[in-house]
Simulated scan of single mutants.
Amino acid sequence: MAQVYLHTMFGNGARAMQEAAGSRASYARMEANAGAADMLTDREADFIAARDSFYMASVSEDGWPYVQHRGGPAGFLRRIGDNRIGFADYRGNRQYLSAANLAADDRVSLFLMDYPNRRRLKLIGHAHGSDDPATIAALMTPGYGAEPERAFLIDVVGFDWNCPQHITPRFTQKEIERLTAPLVDELDRLRARIAELEG
């Protein structure tokens, strides 16, 4: 667990509950080594680039949390600097809830899931939209048919890798096809052999 994430997310209430549960001492040791920022490494960048969706939480002007699912081709969310990630914001239902929330409060929390491998990465940071054509073009996915309205850039403040406990493995159609391809090939060979023997 990264130290800045701990310092940012653990309020006094959480620390008091950790104390009561007996887990405070181990978290306090982790917090003691806090640096200026939790730096993204190639491990995080590779994980981020492999995702085809994520969840992004922002807060409304009235203080209500709003969680939005974002999806696209694998790699549509990517690291574009030492601690900056970004994605092209493609035209959607035109509610503009996240965009409006970020105009008032730029803090976001992202949840990135790898269900087959039971891994998740949580990120917190400051986000802003960009209408700069060069930035938007740099974040577009070649061959993807949707049209972007803007780019979102997120300066990551902290992140945390979670344990696999309670993550149910889920697979996409392509992942299932890849995993079952050897069995399908073997079945085809057996059918051909049976047809040959019967013929």
Rank of each mutant, 00 (worst) to 15 (best):
A50N: 09
A50D: 12
A50Q: 12
R51A: 15
R51S: 15
D52Q: 12
D52K: 09
S53Y: 13
S53Q: 13
S53K: 09
F54R: 01
F54G: 04
Y55G: 03
A57Q: 09
S58Q: 07
V59A: 03
V59R: 06
V59T: 15
E61G: 11
E61R: 14
E61A: 15
D62I: 01
G63V: 05
G63C: 05
G63Q: 06
G63D: 09
G63F: 01
W64Q: 12
W64A: 13
P65A: 07
P65N: 05
P65H: 08
Y66D: 14
Y66E: 14
V67E: 04
V67G: 02
V67Y: 02
V67D: 01
Q68P: 00
Q68M: 10
Q68L: 07
Q68G: 02
Q68C: 07
Q68V: 11
Q68S: 14
H69V: 11
H69G: 04
H69N: 12
R70N: 11
R70E: 01
R70M: 10
R70V: 07
G71T: 03
G71L: 05
G71N: 12
G71R: 13
G72R: 05
G72L: 04
G72N: 04
P73H: 09
P73T: 09
A74C: 07
A74R: 15
A74D: 03
A74I: 04
A74W: 08
A74K: 14
G75F: 08
G75T: 10
F76L: 07
F76E: 04
L77M: 13
L77Q: 01
R78A: 13
R78K: 15
R79V: 04
R79E: 01
R79F: 01
R79M: 02
I80H: 02
I80V: 14
I80A: 02
G81M: 04
G81V: 02
G81W: 00
G81Y: 02
R84W: 10
R84S: 11
I85R: 04
G86R: 05
G86T: 02
F87K: 08
A88R: 08
A88S: 14
